[in-house]
Amino acid sequence: MFDLLRAKRGSKAGSPRQAARQRLQATIRQDRLEVSTPQLSELRVNLLSTINEHLPVAADFAEFGLHHDGEDVFLVSRVRLRERQ
């Protein structure tokens, strides 16, 4: 009974163990992608340039980052567009 209670506590969300699991999963997935900061910067420039060929981009506001959702890692970008003149 004591062990069941302890096991329940150990697996509950918000425990240090669960926090460590989540942080490690995110960190390891990102490490395994082997994406460096210079690579991300270069990607940012290239993506903005490509988008700008189709839509007018306000280059002063563009966010790029890697986000984790469950098992997957997503490249998420948020780019402000400007009105065509």
Binding site: D3, R6, A7, R9, G10, S11, K12, S15, P16, R17, Q18, A20, R21, L24, Q25, I28
Partner: peptide, 16 residues
């Protein structure tokens, strides 16, 4: 510590 939820278990480590 594993039982109390304060440390990663060996299964957690091996999963990663």
């Amino acid at each position: 510590m594993v039982r109390q939820g304060d440390m990663l278990s060996s299964d957690d480590v091996l999963d990663m």
